[in-house]
Computed example of a mutant assay.
Amino acid sequence: MEVVASAPGKVLIAGGYLVLERPNAGLVLSTTARFYAVVRPLRDSLPADSWTWAWTDVKVTSPQLSRVATYKLSLNKTTLQLTSSRQVAHPLLLHFRESTNPFVEQAIQFSVAAAKATIIDKERKDVVDKLLLQGLNITIIGHNDFYSYRKQIEARGLPLTPEVLLSLPPFSSITFNSEVANGTMTGEKCKPEVAKTGLGSSAAMTTSVVAALLHYLGAVNLSCSGQSSGDNASGRELDLVHAIAQSAHCLAQGKIGSGFDVSAAVYGSQRYVRFSPEILSSAQAIGGTVLPDVVSDVLTQRWDHENKQFSLPPLMTLVSRQASMSILLFPKWQSNHFTGSHQPP
């Protein structure tokens, strides 16, 4: 069995900073740029003594980063232990120890714990146990719009134009900011950072992994037959994806943010009012060390966020332009007799 789930990025068009505090609202649009998570079993068959295993294997592949990380997953505590992390040599990364992605790790841990907590039927629990014993093989890729490819284009001697950017292959390898670009003095060693465009890549990635795992393990049914998951998935199932994705994302970033990026990744474009931070206080206080208890607490909380469906007015489209290879957004008006654009001041 193989499951593919995707989640969109976001653009906050109104309510910046104000959305951090209730009851202030923000208007957020989901983007056509999406993250994709693919989940499949690591092994097709299990040995006879597999029922005695206390750990199972997890493999996470990020082709755009040329990175493969392997873990052991505790079947009791649902916590991960890194066993290896391999990455093709990159000139900017030679002096640094390869790191893992806390957003992916928390998404895996919280999703497995949530599946165990919400699936009560014995037959379905046996299915979950078998799927976990087979191991989890997870692949994650993101749309090019989430990243800046300026250095790649300059290295090829090409002009910095939208046309050149669109000519790049889908899911191209990701470039890194240099030491100087990170704000350090020349010669100082600073770990390079992925060059992003601010479309909410961590939230979209976290949500796609959570959605894929919850569906794979049978905690939700997001089957959509070619349509967006929001068209067919029940509100309860999307709410479960939202609660787990918010929890994993907040714990990974080390703070309880407004959550509008994760909400947009789950529900799409909306008028958003944040949830009360106290909902995730137990997860932050415990630090995720007792995940089954944390997840149980999260799922019993009354999530008081508001997400009312929102869309742009008719004939109005939000498009992106590249200005020095960074994302610039402006509305574009269209009619049967006129095509033009209103440039921002």
Rank of each mutant, 00 (worst) to 15 (best):
M1D: 11
V4M: 12
S6R: 06
G9V: 04
A14K: 08
A14V: 12
G16Y: 10
Y17Q: 14
Y17W: 14
E21Q: 12
P23S: 14
N24L: 08
A25P: 02
G26R: 05
L29H: 01
A33E: 02
R40Y: 03
R43K: 08
S45H: 05
L46K: 05
P47F: 07
A48K: 13
W53I: 04
D57M: 08
P63V: 09
A69S: 15
T70S: 13
K72W: 02
S74T: 07
T78L: 08
Q81D: 07
S85T: 15
V88P: 01
H90G: 06
L92P: 03
L93T: 12
F96I: 11
T100R: 14
T100E: 11
N101M: 05
F103H: 09
V104N: 07
E105D: 11
I108K: 05
Q109E: 15
I119F: 01
D121K: 10
D126L: 11
D126N: 13
V127W: 04
L133D: 04
Q134W: 02
I138K: 05
I138C: 10
G142P: 02
D145H: 10
D145N: 11
F146M: 01
E154Q: 15
A155S: 15
P159K: 12
T161M: 03
E163R: 11
L166D: 11
S167P: 00
S173T: 15
F176Y: 15
F176N: 07
V180I: 15
V180G: 04
N182L: 15
T186N: 08
E188R: 08
K189S: 12
K196L: 10
T197W: 04
S208L: 03
L214T: 03
L214E: 03
H215S: 09
Y216C: 04
A219L: 03
V220F: 07
Q227L: 13
Q227D: 13
Q227S: 15
R236Q: 14
D239P: 00
L240I: 12
A248T: 06
C250F: 14
A252F: 06
Y267P: 02
G268N: 08
G268V: 01
G268P: 07
Y272I: 03
R274N: 05
P277T: 10
L280W: 02
A283G: 04
G288I: 02
G288M: 05
D293L: 15
V294S: 03
S296G: 15
D297P: 00
D297N: 12
T300D: 06
T300K: 06
Q301T: 01
E306C: 08
E306I: 11
Q309M: 05
S311L: 06
L315E: 12
L315H: 12
M316D: 06
V319I: 10
R321Q: 13
M325R: 05
L328E: 14
P331M: 07
N336T: 10
H337D: 13
H337L: 10
H337R: 07
P344N: 06
